[in-house]
Each structure stands twice: as C-alpha cells, then as structure tokens.
Amino acid sequence: MVEAEEYEKGYGSGPQGTREVNFCSIRFNPFVSFFSAVCLWCFVLYAVLDPESDAVFGEWKNWVTSTFTWLYIGSQDYWLLYLFPLVYYYGDMKLGKDDEEPEYGDLTYLAMVWCAGVAIGLIFYGASEPLIHATDGNNRA
C-alpha cells in the first residue's frame, strides 16, 4: 500500500502533483477513476431503464447532425495541413538500419497500405451492408 506521505506528494508537474495509487500493479487516480465510473454507470442505467431515452438520444443526434455537419465537412481536409509538413520534414527518414536496403519499394509499400485500408473497409462493412440492404435500407433513422 502507498504511504500517506507519498500519496500526499503526488507525481505530476502541477502544484500538488497527481493523486496516483498503485493497486495490484495498476496505477490509477482514484478520484478520476471513481467519478468517471459513476458517470458511466448513470448513463448506462438511464439508457437501459428509461423508455424515453431512445427518443431523447434521437433528438440529440438530429441536433448534432443539423448543427455541426458544416464542421465535419470542413474538417475533413484539415489533416492535409498536418500531413504535408510531416512528409516534408520526415519524408526521407529510413525505417531500419542505415546500411540496409529497404525490403520493399515505395510503390509496393503504398500498395500494401492501400490494401490494408480496403481490407478494413471490407471487414467493417462486410456484415453491416447486407443487413442494411435486407431491411428497408434506411440506417439514418
């Protein structure tokens, strides 16, 4: 168990540090952990026990969709502002030892990354898309 002196000191860089407890080799902040657990379980109980929760969450979803669609669409190309400087500064970085030749060329590596992205899409939509077509096809209700 952690001594009271060590617990009061904290480990963080703030004025009091963070309140970190070691329990069975798991480090956690008790206030944050228990507060978040209570909030999460209150949300779960509300969603499960209140018959009106489905309508409330539907209204929230419609409000977020109608209010923030412009932000979602506008933010989709924001990653380019982050990607181009990374490629400029780190584009010639070699993954591996300095004296080794790359195992794969750039085009082969690009093809592997592309196929991995396509495979993720197939796995994700492989089960859901046929089910959507088997129903009325409207998954935005």
Rank of each mutant, 00 (worst) to 15 (best):
T135Y: 10
P30F: 06
E100G: 03
D136I: 02
G91A: 04
E129P: 04
A4F: 00
G74C: 14
G10Y: 02
V21P: 04
W41I: 15
V21S: 08
E20W: 03
P102S: 12
D98H: 00
A4E: 01
L122A: 15
G91P: 01
F84Q: 12
G121P: 06
S53N: 00
S128A: 07
D98L: 01
E59G: 13
A47W: 02
E3M: 10
K94M: 06
M112Q: 10
P30I: 09
Y46S: 11
A4K: 07
E6H: 12
L71T: 08
F68A: 14
A119Y: 06
V44W: 02
S25Y: 01
D77H: 06
A134K: 10
Y89M: 12
N62K: 13
F23Y: 08
D136R: 07
Y82M: 13
P130E: 11
L131P: 00
C115V: 03
W79Q: 03
W63S: 02
L80R: 07
G126I: 14
S53Q: 06
M112Y: 03
P30G: 10
Y11T: 15
R19K: 15
S33D: 06
D99G: 09
E103M: 14
E129I: 13
G74T: 05
L110T: 09
C115P: 01
E100T: 00
W41Y: 07
P102M: 08
V64C: 05
R140N: 12
L122S: 10
A127L: 12
W60H: 08
R140C: 05
A141R: 07
N138A: 08
F23N: 05
G121E: 12
G58S: 14
N139D: 10
S13M: 04
P85K: 01
D77I: 09
Q16W: 03
C42K: 06
E129Q: 10
S53W: 00
N138V: 05
A111Y: 05
Y72S: 08
E20D: 14
L49S: 09
S33E: 09
D136E: 08
N138L: 07
V2K: 13
L81P: 02
H133T: 05
A127G: 09
I73C: 10
E101L: 13
G17N: 11
V87S: 04
G74M: 09
D98P: 00
P51L: 06
L83P: 01
A116D: 05
S13I: 11
A37P: 07
Y104T: 10
A111H: 04
W63T: 04
L131M: 12
M93K: 00
T69P: 02
I26V: 03
L107S: 10
